[in-house]
Lab assay of single mutants.
Amino acid sequence: MATADDFKLIRDIHSTGGRRQVFGSREQKPFEDLVDLGWLKRSSVDSRATHYQITERGTSAAL
């Protein structure tokens, strides 16, 4: 179930172009929650960072 923080984060991601790069596993937790909701997808993972991209469902949630 989505929380107020989830909606705040997806709106922030949407307003800044729909993509986010995250460093460190602790910082990934809120983004992984949005992946579980179907609002974000992991577009790539490298040794230092994970890249996320907003989905259509995420765009709808952000509006």
Rank of each mutant, 00 (worst) to 15 (best):
D46C: 10
R20P: 04
G24V: 07
R19D: 07
R19N: 11
Q53W: 08
F23V: 15
A2P: 15
V22T: 04
K29V: 07
S60T: 12
W39E: 01
F23K: 12
D6C: 08
L9S: 02
A62I: 04
I13D: 00
I13M: 04
P30E: 06
Q53C: 09
K8I: 12
H51W: 15
I54E: 03
A62D: 02
F31I: 03
D5T: 06
E56H: 08
F31D: 00
D36S: 13
G24S: 08
V45W: 10
K29S: 07
Q53H: 09
L40P: 01
T16P: 01
D46T: 13
A62N: 02
S15K: 12
A62M: 03
Q53L: 10
G18Q: 02
A49D: 06
H14N: 06
D6Q: 13
S25G: 10
A49I: 11
S60A: 15
G18F: 02
P30F: 06
A2T: 05
F23S: 15
L63V: 08
E56M: 08
W39G: 00
D46P: 05
I10M: 03
F7D: 02
R11H: 08
E32T: 06
L34P: 00
Q21V: 15
E27G: 10
R26Y: 14
G58A: 01
L9D: 01
S47T: 11
D5W: 07
F31T: 02
L37R: 06
K41P: 01
S43W: 10
T16Q: 10
A61C: 07
G18V: 02
G18K: 02
K41I: 15
T16W: 06
D5K: 10
R42D: 03
G38K: 05
L40V: 05
R48E: 15
F7L: 10
Q21M: 13
Y52Q: 01
R48Q: 13
Q28P: 04
Y52D: 01
A62Y: 03
Y52S: 01
T55K: 01
G38A: 04
S47W: 08
R57A: 15
D6W: 05
S43P: 04
M1L: 12
T59N: 07
K41E: 14
E27Q: 10
I54R: 00
L40W: 00
L63N: 07
L37S: 02
R26P: 11
S25Y: 09
L40R: 00
Q21S: 15
E32C: 06
K8D: 09
S47D: 14
S25P: 12
F31S: 01
M1Q: 13
T55E: 02
G24E: 09
S15F: 12
P30R: 11
H14M: 12
S60P: 02
